[in-house]
């Protein structure tokens, strides 16, 4: 398995994540898509660490995983807050209504 094939699969995963972030309307699928974006980055970092011996990339990959965990925690908080304010989990609705826009 060469680095180029890994990179192509990572780009496809990144494109799927980008599609989800820009096109999907609800928080849960946007959250999945964000995780896919981060995992595409981790895939490239791990593959370059294996093929080229760039071991510092593994340290960066661990940092990215920690950031993804923090993002998950913050995402669930935003998710629940959105549900409390608008009774829905659609980010666009936060602009349209809710108690704080009155």
């Amino acid at each position: 398995m060469s680095f180029e094939i890994d990179m192509i699969f990572a780009i496809i995963l990144f494109a799927i994540g980008l599609y989800g972030v820009t096109n999907k309307a609800d928080f849960l699928r946007i959250f999945f898509s964000l995780e896919m974006l981060l995992n595409a980055v981790i895939l490239v970092l791990a593959s370059s660490a294996y093929h080229f011996g760039m071991t510092q990339n593994l340290a960066i990959a661990y940092i990215v995983i920690v950031i993804a965990t923090l993002e998950a925690a913050a995402g669930v908080l935003i998710f629940l807050l959105s549900n409390r304010i608008t009774k829905e989990v659609i980010p666009d609705k936060l602009d349209e209504g809710g108690k704080y826009n009155d």
Binding site: L28, R29, F32, A72, V76, L80, N83, V89
Partner: peptide, 15 residues
């Protein structure tokens, strides 16, 4: 597990 907690809020189908 965090996502499953979110699923309990939105139900079985996406909006």
């Amino acid at each position: 597990v965090l996502v499953l907690f979110g699923v309990t809020v939105i139900g079985s189908t996406f909006p």
